[in-house]
Computed example of a mutant assay.
Amino acid sequence: MKRIHYKAFSIALFPIILLLIGCTEKVDEKTDEYIQAVDAVLHNALTGPDDTLKEILELEDGKERSTALTEYEESLYKDYFASETAYKDFISRYGTVFMTESHKNNYILAVENIEYERTHSKENIYNFSIQLQYQKEGKSQEVKNITGQADLNDEQKIERMLIRVNDLWGSFPKDKRE
Rank of each mutant, 00 (worst) to 15 (best):
I4H: 04
I4Q: 09
H5N: 09
H5R: 13
K7Q: 05
F9W: 09
S10T: 13
A12K: 02
L13M: 05
L13H: 00
F14V: 11
F14L: 12
P15M: 00
I16R: 02
I16Q: 02
I16K: 01
I17H: 02
L18R: 03
L18S: 02
L18E: 01
L19D: 06
I21W: 08
E25G: 11
E25R: 15
K26N: 13
D28L: 13
D28T: 10
K30G: 11
E33V: 04
I35N: 00
A37I: 03
V38C: 04
V38T: 09
D39S: 15
D39F: 08
A40W: 11
V41I: 10
V41M: 07
H43W: 11
N44S: 14
A45I: 01
L46I: 07
L46M: 15
T47R: 05
P49Y: 00
D50L: 07
D50Y: 04
D51E: 12
T52H: 01
K54E: 07
K54Y: 03
I56T: 00
I56W: 00
I56L: 04
L57I: 11
L57K: 03
E60H: 12
D61S: 10
D61Y: 12
E64P: 07
E64Q: 15
R65H: 14
S66E: 15
S66Y: 14
T67S: 14
T70K: 13
E71A: 13
E73M: 10
E73V: 10
E73G: 06
L76T: 01
Y80T: 01
F81G: 02
F81W: 02
A82R: 00
S83Q: 05
S83I: 11
